[in-house]
């Protein structure tokens, strides 16, 4: 599947969840299934590689190395997490280039300030800065098939009108698709009913109500969260075993 075909596929299969991975085990499990793409998520990679909960703790070079390793394991589409560009538009230029050369087919840029944080209420940047980063990322790309998707994370601060305005600017500046994060169900429903110039996706986690008008859902790490719960259970089991032995 090509990047362009992916958007068509998502449009025809709007219930599709694109799974997220940040570690090799999860990636291999997902790779053996027929998902149209896999998101190599910055937060999950930060959890795995440096034991940190916030994406902004992970540097570009650390993330890109992991992306290259996963690229070798899978031929199908990978979405690379550019975070907020790892700096200003100039940094975004070199970061996007690095992620494309490391195997990213789709580059996901968010509208946080730098450094990006994994938080429910992130601080978002100005439309001018975001557009500059988008243009820089586009100028950095070598392969005309590589796409740039923008994750808008500030609906709680700039509202529906602000997000519609941003989507208009981003369409004009050459973005390929939009993903909305940190929304509530009513806001998303309202957006889904609005005629927008770009394909609209949203982030997904268990309990998310999938609604019409959203063409595709970006997983926020369901599989790693299940694994984490299983690990805690296993740890408790080991601890109980240890206590039993000590009591003997």
């Amino acid at each position: 599947m090509t990047q362009a075909n992916l958007l068509t596929y998502l449009d025809n299969h709007p219930e599709t969840i694109i799974p997220a991975s940040g570690d090799g085990n999860t990636f291999i499990s997902l790779s053996s299934q027929n998902f149209p793409a896999i998101l190599i998520d910055g937060t999950l990679a930060a959890n795995n590689l440096i034991a940190e909960d916030s994406e902004g703790m992970l540097t570009l070079s650390e993330y890109a190395k992991f992306l290259r390793d996963m690229r070798l394991k899978k031929n199908s589409l990978l979405i690379a997490d550019l975070q907020s560009g790892f700096g200003n538009p100039l940094n975004t230029f070199y970061s996007a280039k690095e992620l494309e050369r490391s195997g990213g087919d789709i580059i996901l840029l968010n509208d946080q300030t730098y450094p990006a944080h994994t938080t429910a209420e992130p601080i978002t940047t100005t439309p001018e800065d975001l557009i500059g980063k988008l243009r820089a990322a586009k100028d950095a790309l070598e392969n005309p098939a590589t796409q740039i998707w923008i994750k808008l994370e500030g609906i709680q601060s700039y509202g529906i009108d602000g997000i519609i305005q941003r989507i208009g600017y981003l369409a004009k500046a050459g973005a390929d698709a939009i993903a909305i994060d940190h929304y509530d169900a009513d806001q998303l429903a309202q957006l889904a009913e609005t005629k927008l110039p770009l394909p609209l996706m949203a982030t997904w986690e268990p309990g998310t109500k999938q609604i019409a008008g959203i063409s595709g859902w970006l997983d926020k790490g369901y599989l790693p969260s299940v694994i984490k719960r299983a690990q805690l259970e296993a740890i408790n089991y080991i601890k109980q075993g240890g206590l039993t032995y000590a009591e003997k």
Binding site: N88, P89, L90, F93, T126, P127, E128, D129, I131, G132, K133, R135, A136, A173
Partner: peptide
Amino acid sequence: DAEYSPEKM
């Protein structure tokens, strides 16, 4: 760096 200035964007 100058190419992506807020004013130009």
